[in-house]
Every structure is written in structure tokens, then in C-alpha cells.
Design a protein around this nucleic acid. Structure first.
Lengths: 301, 301
DNA sequence: CTATATGTTTATTATTATTAAAGACAGAAG
DNA sequence: CTTCTGTCTTTAATAATAATAAACATATAG
């Protein structure tokens, strides 16, 4: 009933490695040196050393730490299962919601979900709280969470917001000087698009990651933490939905490629209005695809 | 060591009120009715009734609940102190950061802050987690939080983002039909601005709330949850900083009023380009004000 | 005597155990 | 047959606790 002793266990086992890499009779470095080396606090080092002393692998004598025997496999400690980090949790959670097609309005059970995702309930709470900023989940008056995102309204608003941000990126991009990195990136992306076009019948599945890369490149020219934060959620939602909307996938992807190519051309011409128009057309298509994807899912459930 | 029994205590005291409003010998309604009336679960009602029975204020006999004596002041229970809600916490936290001019990079002590703000540590954690979406605070690798916002970079990016969103609002607003609410709102706002202008020397402090109202009206025409969410954080930061930047306050506010009036005119002419230009100018001024405000604070510290 | 090492104490966080509250179910009473 | 109550299960909010980090004090080697 407290925090996991992962750090202690790992430090302990690393110390065993260190002992084995030295000769019996050698001295270990100072506590300070060890703590710096293993990137843990001295407290952890001291606990680990104390255990090694107890197990008669080393002898602590004043400030000497003398190795007295090799380690045995049984000396190694096994730590508690590693829990997911917040980022891993984020993608796993969104994956779960979108893949399972969890309907809006579903009550989320913190205890159960935390088991399923093998994280502390606490971590899940925190995560939901941060998601609530995006309106994907909503806190109920007296405890509990409700999934509220991924309704049609939500998709419309997300698409609109995306359009606002991306049109801004496009306008800024068109004004960038020729020596900027982005132009080389766009050239490379154009090649990738053309290459995919020639083998579209077989490899139309490859479009999804290319789409993400393309939009990431465009939005990358704006160095703004808010844009980036939103980019994450936007790309997740769009990416996932495209992946599961199987209707007309080949045709959709082919025409999306054409739209991308048109946009690249327009950007290269440095005609901001033309580029904006091209981007607007493509984003409208994306929005429509997302909406139909949601509709189909709804019909299925 | 568990959740507070605030709900029990409050229900209990409300039941006392109810008993006192009836005659000795009267019957209380059913548990279900009481729980609906007091908006608590039957579990709470049952615990409260049990206590009233124990204190010989009522007698529980089968499904009869008979009042047998008046309540005494000593019968009332005192609950634990009420904690702040998440929204209250949000404004109090930002208030603290901005008012105290807490420098970027400050480590935030959850235990201490939760006492200061009289919330559960847990609540504070969750709150910080949600703030981290806006990059105001950052989670350190192995526990703990660091205040990272309100650097110059942050202010620049926030201003830029605000500009993107608000220019979008302005363009949409200019395209709205004459029967839309907003035009009447703008007329009213224009009057308020003109009125304040005549008494600017004395009442220049009144500009800050008017500014907020003005921008809220403009952004209100876009019904998008993401825009609204950001509006909250943007208005907080700008609002607070304007409040404490005392240099040339009268002049600044006077010219801001002029900029607002110009924008209103441009919007009314339905000339999207003219309106955009006016908005852009005003937002640039705001950005500059925010930046100098930050600089001055920095010099002071 | 100084710099570095260790011993000790304190502060702070992540996690678990516990309790309050909500809700579900079934049987009893009208 | 409906409404009410007794019992039980589930769930979320909080306090307690162990793990860790860091600060401080003391000791020792060069």
C-alpha cells in the first residue's frame, strides 16, 4: 500500500551487474558516485547496498564496500509489473474508445478501466481530467465520468477547428522563403505521393500514414505549443477513423492524393489564395469522410 | 480516512428542519420520498434516520417514522469544511500564479498548495494534469510539477493562437445576416464604449471587463467547444495581466477603445477584409501590451 | 584544513486501504 | 400489484503509508 519499489529493484539488479563486472575483493565506488551513475537517489543506493551486505555479496566496512562473492540468479529481485505511462495510456484509451466504438454517453468506470489498462486508478483519473479539456469526457456532478466525445457534433467542431488551424498554417507556409526546410520536405512528399499513386490499387492502405506525415509537415511550420497539442488529438481521431472506414477506401485515398498534390503545387506557386482554396477543399473532403465514417459506425451499432 | 460525510451531515440537518416544521406525533414520508426530496441516496437517508432514532428525535417502527420531540441546537451535526470545486480552484490558482508573479520553473508542491487552496491533494493533482494540456505546468519525469507558463515565449504563442481564433471569428461574424443577435449586441457595446470614453479620465479601470465582454461577444458567434475552451484560458491570462500592468493605463485603454470602435464599424460595413485588418491591429496591440506587462514584472523580480 | 563520504532527518510523492455514498435486488407490507 | 424497506454490491473520494528524493549534519581521508 504505497508506491512501487521499482527503482530500488532496478538499482539493486544494476548493482549486481556492476559487482559481476568487477573482481571479488574489489571496492565499489562511493554512494554519491553510484547514485549519479544509476540516476537514482542515494537513499535507494543505500537500501540496495544494505541488501547486498545482508545477502553477503558485499561487505560494508566503514566507507569500504568490498565485493566478496559472485551473484547468483536467485539474488536478482523481481519488481512489480511496470505500469503504463500517461502517453501510452492516451493512445491505448483512444484506441479502445474508437476501436470498440464505445457509444457517447457511456459511463466510464475508473476502477475497471484502470485494471484493463493496468494503470493506477489515480493515473486514469488524472488522464480523464486532462481529456476533459478537449471535451472528450465529462465529469459528472458527484463523481464519475461520462464519455461524451465522438458524436457528430464533436466531429463537426473538431473538423472546423482543424480547418481554422490548418488554413493558418498554409497561409504562413506560402510566405516562407525558398531556403526554408519545408520546400525540400514538400518535394520529397510529392515524390512519395506520386509513387503511391502508381501502385494505388495494391497499396492504398499506405495512404493513412502518408496523410498524417503530410499534415504534420504543413502544421510543423507553425511553432506554437497550442497548435501542436491540438494536432495530437486531431491526428489521432482522423487517423483512427480513416483506418476503419473501409467504404471506397481506394477511391477516397486516390482522390485525397490528388488533393494533396494540388495543394503542394499551389503552395509552391506561393499563391496564398490558391493554396488556401486547395487546402479548404481537401479539409472539406476530410470532414465529410470523418462524418460518414461516424454515421456508418452508428448504423452498425 | 475516507471521503467526507458532508452529504450525510447536510441531509441529517435538513431532516431536523423537516421534523421541526411538523408536529410531534406526525409521520415522516418514506425513505424514497425523502431521498428524492433532499437529492441524496437512500443510504444517506437511512443513516440519518438511524441517528435521529438513536437520539430519540424520532421512533422507527416498521415503516412508520414518528416524530417524538423537537430538535435541540446540540442535535445539529457539524460537517467537515467544504472544499473548493475545480472551477473555483482554476481561477484561484491562476490568480495566485499571476498575482504573486510566480516565476517560470518554480516547482509546485502539491501537498502545500492543496492546503493553501483548501482542496484535496488529489483534486489539485487532477487540476494540474488538466492544465498541463495548455502547457502552463509540466509534469516532471519522476513525480512533481513545475510551473512552466507565463514566459515570454508562452505569451507570444498564446497571443498568436488567440489571433488565429479571433480572426476566424471576425470573418464569420462579418458574414452573418442582419437579423442575427450579434448586431444588436455590437450596437449596445458601441454605446458602452462611447459612454466610457466620455468619462475615461475617471473610470479607465472599467475598461478591463468591457474588453472581456467585447471579445466574448465576438468569439461567441462561433459555436465550437474548442474555441470556447481556449477562450477561457486566453481571457484569464489577458484579463489578469491587464489588471496589473499599471503603466499608461489610461492611454492604453483609451486607444484600445478606439480600436474596438473601429472594429465595430468595420464589422457593420460587412467588409471582411477591413474588419480583419482592424482586428489584426487591435490584437497586435494587445499582444504588445501583454509582452511589456511580462517584461515589467520580470524587471521587478 | 578542506573536500568528499557517510549517517540521519525531513519532505514529498505515488499507491493502497478504507470508508461514504449510490444504486441494485429481493422480499415484505399495504 | 405497487410501494416501501432491508440487505448487498459497486464505486469513487480520501487518509494512511511506503518509497523516494533531498537537505542537513557529522566523520574521515588526503
Amino acid at each position: 500500500m504505497a508506491r512501487t519499489n521499482t527503482r530500488f529493484v532496478e538499482a539493486h539488479n544494476q548493482l549486481l551487474d556492476l559487482c559481476d563486472s568487477l573482481k571479488v575483493g574489489d571496492f565499489l565506488p562511493s554512494e554519491n558516485a553510484l547514485s549519479a551513475q544509476l540516476d537514482v537517489s542515494r537513499t535507494v543506493i543505500r537500501s540496495a547496498l544494505a541488501r547486498l551486505d545482508e545477502q553477503a555479496i558485499i561487505v560494508l566496512d566503514g566507507r569500504d564496500k568490498i565485493i566478496i562473492r559472485r551473484s547468483r540468479p536467485a539474488d536478482r529481485l523481481e519488481g512489480p509489473p511496470v505500469l503504463l505511462s500517461l502517453e501510452e495510456l492516451e493512445s491505448r484509451f483512444l484506441d479502445w474508445v474508437l476501436r470498440m466504438d464505445v457509444p457517447p454517453g457511456t459511463a466510464l468506470n475508473v476502477a475497471q478501466l484502470s485494471k484493463e489498462f493496468s494503470v493506477a486508478t489515480h493515473t486514469l483519473q488524472e488522464f480523464l481530467s486532462s481529456l476533459s479539456r478537449f471535451g472528450i469526457v465529462v465529469r459528472r456532478p458527484r463523481g464519475g465520468w461520462v464519455l461524451d466525445g465522438f458524436t457528430t457534433d464533436y466531429a463537426v467542431e473538431l473538423s472546423d477547428f482543424r480547418t481554422v488551424l490548418e488554413l493558418n498554417s498554409v497561409r504562413q507556409l506560402a510566405a516562407l522563403p525558398p531556403e526554408h526546410d519545408i520546400w525540400a520536405q514538400l518535394d520529397a512528399l510529392e515524390q512519395e505521393h506520386l509513387s503511391l499513386l502508381t501502385r494505388i490499387d495494391a497499396d492504398f492502405h499506405d495512404f493513412s500514414p502518408l496523410d498524417e506525415k503530410f499534415h504534420a509537415a504543413i502544421n510543423g511550420v507553425v511553432s506554437n505549443r497550442f497548435v501542436k497539442e491540438f494536432q495530437k488529438i486531431i491526428s489521432l481521431v482522423f487517423h483512427y477513423h480513416f483506418q476503419w472506414n473501409k467504404s471506397n477506401e481506394r477511391e477516397r485515398n486516390e482522390s485525397a492524393i490528388q488533393e494533396h498534390l494540388t495543394l503542394i503545387d499551389a503552395l509552391r506557386s506561393r499563391d496564398a489564395d490558391k493554396a488556401e482554396a486547395a487546402a479548404r477543399r481537401h479539409l472539406a473532403t476530410s470532414k465529410q469522410t470523418l462524418l460518414t465514417s461516424l454515421q456508418t459506425h452508428h448504423h452498425a451499432s
